[in-house]
Design a protein around this nucleic acid. Structure first.
Length: 825
RNA sequence: GCGGGCGUGGCGGAACGGUAGACGCGCCGGAUUUAGGAUCCGGUGAGCGCGAGCUCGUGGAGGUUCAAGUCCUCUCGCCCGCACCA
């Protein structure tokens, strides 16, 4: 018998699968039954260095599902690609004085090699890379689809600017005021940038969550939170000197009578006009300038509420009272209307501000228990709240007053019920080289003109210096920038910014269905057969960025008639992270474990097995070196058991049809095998708990190894066949090799084993005996025993009898096949 | 502050409301080996007992139940996300 040599076994079978095109899945013919189609997808990797353990876990989970589903007779689409535009490759290229494309290509080659070495069952014929012109041509086409539908627009506005990466960032990429990528403090700049109107889809992004079959609650919660829907009212406040109304959004129109002052965000466009020529002008503009140097996110770090009085007043629409207008940094231009009515008696922040600056505080709502306490804020809501100091509404329950005040605003044309969202439009321009060019030409006479379809792709030009300069490096490619306007033919210039790479990854899952189509981004009929994705698997770090953008794109495509579904991913599974020594594995912490080294030492099968055996895949897990060694030992023991059987002439064997005629040790082993089939199938397919599925196989091996010499060859053969078959989705190479040693072939196409009910039920069962719920003994009994028989046997146990002696048995609970519990006094 | 989640041996983790700790790691003992490693066998929650066995054990306190790691209430601790969002 040969030694278990993972490297040799794995190389052999990877070649066999490759030659047999084992995992290539063509699209179904039109009219072919679509009910057996399964689209299993893991999030595509960003090709910055090499694969890490997080990738190994992600792709191993997906691969296990694919193998199992194939063997359940489903036709599985399992593609792979690379999200290849983006900063890390570009920064590496600058550092090393190389071309970003060359760096990216090298990284892709390295990752592809690792993936093939892991033996994941990927359909390589569909491989794609988002930085290839054949792909990004269609990213540009999608941009233009949005442009034509009014969903892409260019606007000058304050944006988040990363001073180190020298580019703007989307709100979603700013974490606590810092750049998601490099960690530097984000600044505010006013720039003309391209946006997508994701805000038009805010409500649908919420409503359509109902269409998702199985998404983790926390991801849905994060998205809901990010969209930030709140119900309230828009109220117009009239400003006499400007002869203009300034709207505010409030969730508490019921407190309108308590609005004793008014605040504008420092960026509010009306401020210069409002203070022009007043004594306060210099002080106010100074305050505005001071704030402009810092982004909202940056300012939010400092919770001190600064502000300045404009000296102007504005009219409270319900009281007619003139209230002072201030400018303060705690009001954000990016939320609501950039102006608020301040109700210090019922809002913590307004209260703090009023207290600090000596502004009036007027309570207008009191809990039913009595007056609102002096000098405190009452922000709570209660059904018993009653209105105070609120003109005609005084004395009404607050709930009624809310509706009545909104109705009265509406009658007078100074307000109405509105819904506000926290979500802001998606800023997609980036002032960097390594991205997809925006296919727009700017013409002095025609304005922003889309590049016609037949001129796509707008190819990323070759340039000498990729370094960011605050302006896209593309601007230096003057031959490329200067083009005739597609509309009038006059001199015009290309857009020099590139797109956010999240744009590229927001539609790749559709392209996989039709990856080589050069006539269109995709063929809708083909796409509608495969999508939505049946099972999407990835890290929770994409909960809002990628997953929200992809949902948005899919809805846009649906509205445009490009696809027939509203949600891209029916089910989402988010895997937990891998920790080592109590911290996330990361290069900066120096606690990374290299998959390559482990594969070299133990083989891909052991690594795959351990990635699944560590714990439930949705949980974070702690890496231990001993763990993979244990999995390797398991495979070795499996190898020697099967090798020994094969040498004795044992072959792949089916289950006996019934327990009849089997000897005791043989029957026990056959039962164990069926138990393992049942447990492993249920745990892995229903809950994705591969850890217990693997444990079941380990138990079966333990029993098969110890019963080896006591059972007939057919029984041993069945146990071994089952074991190999069950482990195949996790450790496919060794499974295939051992299957072949037992005379089988193409295990990957073999039907998934079925547990026979006749072997799942046992003739004898162990009965636990409790007295007052405490375990006092156990005995084995025929499964068919009556309650009376069980009770009698239980009473007869010595230890039980001694606990019953001298006490009244008040009640006896008998759970057939499980336990007997005596309740005594 | 709001939202999501988690607390079980030395460790990763198992347990349809019904025998807590499956499986694996580690550790202890034994076999084999010149030695180390590897492999095989046995043991391994804590305390008590020569033993059959007893007591205590799932962050804490209550509750429901014949029976609670599991269900309910309160509480403590930790992790993640969002946060001056009007």
């Amino acid at each position: 018998m040969q030694r278990y040599d993972p490297a040799a076994v794995e190389a052999k079978w990877q070649q066999v699968w490759h030659d047999a095109e084992a995992f290539t899945t063509p699209n179904p013919e039109p009219g072919e039954d679509g009910s057996r189609l399964q689209y299993v997808l893991e999030m595509l990797p960003y090709p910055s260095g090499e694969l890490h353990m997080g990738h190994v876990k992600n792709y191993t989970i997906g691969d296990a599902l694919c193998h199992q589903r194939r063997r359940h007779g489903l036709r599985v689409l399992h593609p792979m690609g690379y999200d290849s535009f983006g900063l890390p490759a570009e920064n590496a290229a600058i550092r090393e004085g190389r071309n970003p494309r060359a760096v990216t290509d090298d990284n892709i080659a390295a990752i592809r090699k690792q993936m093939k070495r892991m033996g994941w069952s990927i359909d390589w014929s569909r491989e794609l890379s988002t930085a290839e012109p054949e792909y990004y041509r269609w990213t540009q086409w999608i941009f233009l689809q949005l442009f034509e539908r009014g969903l892409a627009y260019k606007r000058e506005a304050p944006v988040n600017w990363c001073p180190v990466d020298q580019t703007v960032l989307a709100n979603e990429q700013v974490i606590d005021g810092h750049c998601e990528r490099c960690g530097s403090l984000v600044e505010s700049r006013v720039l003309a940038q391209w946006y997508f109107k994701i805000t038009d889809y805010a409500q649908r992004l919420l409503d359509d969550m109902a269409l998702l079959e199985d998404w983790p609650e926390r991801v849905l919660a994060m998205q809901r939170n990010w969209i930030g829907r709140s119900e309230g009212a828009t109220v117009e406040f009239r400003q006499r000197d400007l002869d203009e109304s300034i709207p505010v959004f409030t969730t508490r129109p019921d407190t309108l009578f308590g609005a004793t002052f008014f605040i504008l965000a420092p960026e509010h466009p009306l401020i210069p006009k409002l203070v022009a020529g007043t004594p306060q002008e210099a002080a106010v503009l100074d305050y505005v300038r001071h704030n402009a140097a810092h982004s909202e996110e940056e300012r939010a770090q400092d919770k001190a509420k600064t502000g300045v009085d404009t000296g102007r007043t504005i009219t409270n629409p319900v009281t007619g009272e003139e209230i002072p207008v201030w400018v303060a940094d705690y009001v954000l231009m990016g939320y609501g209307t950039g102006a608020i009515m301040a109700v210090p008696a019922h809002d913590e922040r307004d209260f703090e501000f009023a207290s600090k600056h000596g502004l009036r505080i007027l309570p207008v709502i009191a809990p039913a228990s009595g007056e609102a306490p002096e000098g405190e804020v009452y922000t709570a809501h209660s059904a018993d709240d009653v209105m105070l100091n609120s003109g005609p509404f005084t004395g009404l329950p607050a709930d009624e007053a809310y509706a009545a005040i909104v109705a009265s605003l509406r009658e007078r044309g100074s307000g109405e019920a509105t819904i506000n969202y926290r979500l802001r439009d998606w800023l997609i321009s980036r002032q960097r080289y390594w991205g997809c060019p925006i296919p727009i030409v700017s013409c002095p006479s025609c304005g922003l003109v889309p590049v016609p379809d037949d001129q796509l792709p707008v190819v990323l030009p070759e340039i000498d210096d990729y370094r960011p300069k605050g302006l896209s490096p593309l601007a230096t490619a003057t031959d490329w920038v200067n083009v005739p306007c597609p509309s009038c033919g006059g001199p015009a210039q290309r857009e020099t910014d590139t797109m956010d790479t999240f744009m590229c990854s927001s539609w790749y899952y559709i392209r996989y269905v039709d990856p080589h189509n050069s006539e269109a981004a995709w063929d809708r009929a083909e796409v509608d057969r495969w999508l939505p994705v049946d099972q999407y698997i990835g890290g929770v770090e994409h909960a809002i960025l990628h997953l929200l953008y992809s949902r948005f794109f899919t809805k846009v495509f649906y509205d445009a008639g490009l696809v027939g579904f509203k949600e891209p991913f029916k089910r989402l599974f988010t895997q937990g992270m891998i920790y080592k020594d109590g911290a996330k594995m990361s290069k900066s912490k120096g606690n990374v474990v290299s998959p390559d080294e482990l594969v070299a030492r133990y083989g891909a099968d052991s690594l795959r097995l351990y990635a699944l055996f560590m714990g439930p895949p949705e949980d974070d897990a702690e890496w231990t070196d001993g763990g993979i060694a244990g999995c390797y030992r398991f495979l070795q023991r499996l190898w020697s058991l099967v090798g020994g059987l094969a040498a004795d002439g044992v072959r792949v064997t089916a289950s006996p049809a019934s327990p009849a005629g089997l000897g005791e040790p043989g029957l026990a082993l056959v039962r164990k095998a069926h138990w393992a089939i049942d447990k492993s199938t249920r745990d892995s397919s229903e809950r994705f708990h591969f850890n217990t599925a693997v444990a079941a196989a380990m138990e079966l091996l333990n029993e098969a190894a110890s019963a080896r010499d006591e059972v007939e060859p057919a029984v041993a053969g069945f146990a071994a066949s089952t074991l190999i078959s069950l482990i195949q989705p996790y450790a496919p190479h060794i499974a295939e090799e051992l299957w072949q040693q037992l005379g089988g072939e193409q295990l990957w196409r073999e039907a998934w084993p079925e547990a026979l009910p006749a072997f799942l039920v046992h003739d004898t069962v162990e009965i636990a005996v409790q007295v007052n719920g405490k375990l006092r003994g156990r005995f084995s009994a025929a499964a068919a025993s009556s309650d009376e028989q069980l009770e009698a046997e239980a009473r007869a146990l010595e230890n039980v009898a001694s606990h019953l002696e001298g006490r009244d048995v008040v009640r006896v609970i008998v759970v057939p096949r499980k336990l007997v519990n005596f309740v005594v006094r």
